[in-house]
Amino acid sequence: MSDLTTNPAAQAARASEYDAQFGDYFALLKPRVMTLVVFTAFVGLLAAPVPVHPFIGFCAILFIAVGGGASGALNMWWDADIDAVMKRTAKRPIPSGRVQPGEALAIGLALSGFSCVFLALATNALAGGLLAFTIFFYVVVYTMWLKRSTPQNIVIGGAAGAFPPMIGWAAATGSVSVEAVLMFCLTFMWTPPHFWALALFMRSDYDDAKVPMLTVTHGRRSTRKHILVYTILLAALAIGTGFTSVGGPIYLAVALVLNVLFLKGAWDIFRRDETMSEADNFKTEKSFFKLSLLYLFAHFGAILVEAGLARFGIDLLGAF
């Protein structure tokens, strides 16, 4: 825990200077991460073969988003000390002194309980239970345990970010099937190369914070190898998903193009050394990171399109 929580004088000084605004509390919920949660949960909900009342669907997505936000607030409460050290996170509400750690804890706990109970009431107990498990996994397993103890933190912790489409699917169907597991696996396998690319070009952040990222524990050469290996596995999974019931011709076309680009990016990262990367200010690594964002949104977008076509009975292959 941080000395933000153990230094009352510093807290009091900050509190007297600034009154937290609503936007500061909202920032605790990690809105940018929430967009990923909302979108993938939305796809899981609509890709499911059981139609959902639009208002129930809206509420389900809202409660999943609130649950994701609550886990973000609890993450910021616990990680305030390392957030204060890292440039990328130093402006977050707690390290910048805009919100007190106790407030973040209270908001996180309250919204966690609210979101799980209301998701269960609006849809079913399985969806509510999965959301509760996701929050537990992200906060306790990833944030409190793995993040500071193992370089595999991102690999195992990535499961927390992969649950939303499965929760969306469960909210619609009341069960978890192979399609939901495939969507889970897609995000799960995507997470390590995404974060390791970030760790390569935010080079001093994790060192300074003493977070055992792969770049710190195994070196940057090893991280480049890991990115390539995980990207190959991810490409096989992503293209293979195209031949299941959530895939189709549009998904396959999108997956083929993006996976070729992603593999090329991973190969380029693998071939480079630190001298080359520093010479162009990590241009390739940054491009790969940006592409990874498009990669996930495009894959889930394609699943959504395929679900829409199936819902309206349009068979593109049958048209030829």
Binding site: D19, A20, Q21, F22, G23, Y25
Partner: peptide
């Protein structure tokens, strides 16, 4: 100072 926060809540 707290108007924005109160409106948000």
């Amino acid at each position: 100072r707290r108007r924005g926060r109160n409106i948000g809540v």
